[in-house]
């Protein structure tokens, strides 16, 4: 009896000390993957951004020349910055608004809710390559969907070179992105609505508050964590937009739809300016890290909506 007690105590007191380092073994594989495929590449672009380098051979050290050229003499880079701003604001907010509206509608007793939810989410699971090619046809001024509608019903304003006019091309691309990702916002808001205590809604109903007032003053503020998650994911999503632009316009016409990722690809893999491409990568990385950390630290944004 006494022996058994002693034995139990021994195991209890030794395992926490052992366990302290044991945890490291469990996280080691994840850390290794991180070190090789995330941390090392970041060090790599920091170094490469200081080189004049075609990708072959060693490259020449040029200090911060790439950055000077980027900020002083590169109008295309300025376009990518402007487009990133457009992309960020014009996808995130319309998407939040539409997603919220759909979530509210589909949270009520509408017939066929599950089917509607699936329909709105469907674009988010389709490859951006497929989506890009289909939308090219919708936008096509020669026999495309919009051009054909314009012709049949004499709607001149609808007939435009959506992807060929440098003034509107970026907005045409953004519209496709909104279409693709609104369902995602809708799902997050639906989940959020389901976590709201039902008394909140009922109390407002008894007060005689109108539906819209109730939504704006009670429901919307209570979904703050969801808004923050959507903005956090939206900013990073905007900053890494590549496939859709690559398929729709390849950054054209005349670089009007160039985004930082497509510009990195152009410089590094098509013009063989790996050093310059690395400098753009560093700037993009810094923007992404700073904006995300700011949102998480000061606004309390999180990647996953929980509880």
């Amino acid at each position: 009896m006494a022996k058994q007690v002693v034995a139990t105590r021994a195991t209890v007191s030794t395992w926490p000390r052992l366990g302290r380092q044991e945890g490291l073994l469990f996280v080691l594989p994840a850390l290794l993957l991180f070190a090789v495929f995330v941390a090392y590449p970041i060090v790599y672009i920091l170094r490469a951004s200081l080189l004049d380098w075609s990708g072959l051979g060693a490259g020449t050290f040029v200090g911060i020349d790439n950055y000077i050229q980027l900020f002083r003499e590169d109008p295309i880079f300025r376009k990518t910055l402007r487009n990133s701003l457009y992309w960020t604001f014009l996808t995130i907010f319309p998407q939040m608004f539409l997603g919220f509206l759909l979530a509210v509608l589909l949270n009520s007793k509408i017939i066929g809710r599950t089917i509607y939810r699936a329909i709105f989410y469907l674009p988010a699971i389709i490859s951006p390559v497929v989506i890009g090619i289909v939308w090219q046809r919708i936008y096509d001024p020669f026999g495309g969907l919009l051009a054909d509608i314009a012709q049949r019903w004499d709607l001149d304003w609808l007939s435009r070179p959506y992807l060929a006019d440098p003034k509107i091309a970026i907005f045409s691309c953004i519209a496709v992105n909104v279409w693709q990702w609104t369902g995602f916002s809708m799902l997050l808001y639906l989940a959020g609505l389901q976590t709201l205590p039902s008394e909140v809604l009922e109390a407002a109903e008894v007060d005689g508050a109108s539906v819209i007032q109730r939504l704006v003053q009670v429901v919307w503020p209570m979904l703050r964590p969801i808004h923050l998650t959507l903005i956090l994911l939206g900013v990073i999503g905007a900053l890494q937009t590549f496939a859709l632009i690559f398929i729709l316009t390849k950054g054209g016409p005349n670089n009007a739809t160039q985004m930082m990722p497509t510009y990195i690809f152009l410089q590094a893999f098509q013009l063989q300016n790996m050093g310059y491409g690395a400098a753009i990568s560093v700037v993009l990385l810094m923007i992404a890290l700073m904006s995300s950390l700011f949102q998480m630290r000061f606004l309390g944004a999180r990647f996953v909506v929980s509880e």
Partner: peptide, 19 residues
């Protein structure tokens, strides 16, 4: 590890290709 989620994948294409 969570830092990974803030890294735009296009910033990694040059090093991942070279590696």
């Amino acid at each position: 590890l969570m830092l990974t989620l803030m890294v735009p994948i296009p910033t990694l294409i040059i090093p991942l290709f070279q590696i």
